[in-house]
Computed example of a mutant assay.
Amino acid sequence: MKYLSILFGCSMFLIACGGGDKSTLGSTADTGRLAKASSKTSAAASQSNPAIESEPVNNQIELTANDRMQYSDTLFKVRAGEKVSLKLTNIGKMPKNSMGHNFTLLKTGTDITKFAIEGMKYRDQDYVSPAFKGSVIAHTALIGPGESTQITFVIKNKGYYDFICTFPGHYGSMRGKIIAE
């Protein structure tokens, strides 16, 4: 009976810990809280997240990446059809060959996992597979500690767009959304 009580208690604990909304599983909703503190909200786990409504439109994006495989911000709103300027800075200390970072903006509907896994074979192309180049809207070079890179691009159509770091294994936690209005 004593063991049955312990087993029941452990089961209830596991159920309580495992409960909740599974729709955010694998999202970057928590990444923003772990990343370098900023005044911006973290990424939306879904398109109906209230954080989207309060996010200001800004076509001048400054983003950092760190050794914990995190972007400083994971949600941005921009104006569709207008030029967007993005500056990415690697604030980490680890070498580029083990903790390099980039920013890759993908077209809507791109399978992020397939994109990232296929890209792992293409180190010399900053981990972007030639077969998936048509899925890329914008892409920075891979940068190491203390380095920065800047790109400009235009998102032609309104919508929700994913961005990731293509360095092998980073896409799981280094991802976010750009909403073009």
Score class of each variant (00 low, 15 high):
40 K>Q: 06
41 T>W: 14
28 T>C: 15
29 A>P: 01
22 K>W: 02
37 A>T: 01
46 S>Y: 10
35 A>C: 07
32 G>C: 09
33 R>G: 06
43 A>E: 10
41 T>H: 15
49 N>L: 04
32 G>I: 02
36 K>P: 04
35 A>S: 15
26 G>R: 05
34 L>R: 09
21 D>F: 03
55 E>Y: 11
23 S>K: 03
52 I>M: 07
28 T>P: 08
30 D>G: 13
45 A>Q: 13
41 T>Y: 15
24 T>N: 10
54 S>P: 01
44 A>Q: 11
47 Q>T: 07
30 D>F: 14
45 A>W: 12
33 R>I: 04
28 T>K: 05
52 I>Q: 12
28 T>G: 15
52 I>H: 04
33 R>K: 09
39 S>R: 14
31 T>I: 05
39 S>I: 04
33 R>L: 06
54 S>I: 01
27 S>C: 03
40 K>P: 00
36 K>A: 09
20 G>H: 02
49 N>V: 00
46 S>H: 06
51 A>W: 13
32 G>W: 06
35 A>F: 13
38 S>Y: 01
27 S>Y: 01
32 G>V: 00
23 S>E: 04
20 G>A: 03
30 D>K: 07
38 S>T: 05
56 P>R: 13
43 A>S: 14
56 P>F: 06
50 P>V: 02
42 S>F: 09
35 A>M: 09
21 D>L: 02
28 T>S: 15
48 S>C: 06
48 S>L: 14
45 A>H: 11
22 K>I: 01
48 S>Y: 10
56 P>T: 03
24 T>V: 08
28 T>Q: 13
38 S>K: 01
57 V>T: 11
21 D>N: 10
29 A>M: 06
48 S>N: 13
42 S>V: 08
35 A>Y: 11
31 T>L: 11
39 S>E: 13
28 T>L: 12
37 A>Q: 12
29 A>S: 13
27 S>A: 03
24 T>C: 08
24 T>G: 08
34 L>A: 14
25 L>C: 03
51 A>T: 12
36 K>Q: 12
45 A>R: 07
53 E>R: 05
51 A>H: 12
39 S>T: 05
30 D>W: 11
32 G>A: 10
54 S>K: 07
46 S>F: 03
41 T>S: 15
51 A>Q: 13
51 A>G: 12
38 S>F: 01
46 S>I: 00
49 N>F: 03
55 E>F: 04
26 G>T: 00
33 R>V: 04
27 S>G: 12
42 S>D: 13
37 A>C: 05
22 K>G: 03
52 I>A: 11
36 K>C: 07
20 G>L: 05
33 R>S: 11
31 T>P: 00
41 T>V: 10
31 T>H: 15
51 A>S: 15
43 A>N: 04
20 G>Y: 02
44 A>C: 14
57 V>N: 03
43 A>W: 10
48 S>A: 10
26 G>V: 01
40 K>W: 07
33 R>P: 00
34 L>Q: 13
27 S>V: 01
23 S>G: 03
44 A>D: 12
32 G>S: 12
46 S>E: 08
50 P>G: 08
24 T>H: 13
42 S>E: 11
47 Q>H: 09
40 K>F: 09
48 S>E: 13
47 Q>W: 13
56 P>C: 12
49 N>K: 05
49 N>E: 10
21 D>W: 04
23 S>I: 00
37 A>I: 01
35 A>Q: 13
50 P>K: 14
32 G>H: 09
44 A>M: 10
21 D>S: 04
54 S>G: 08
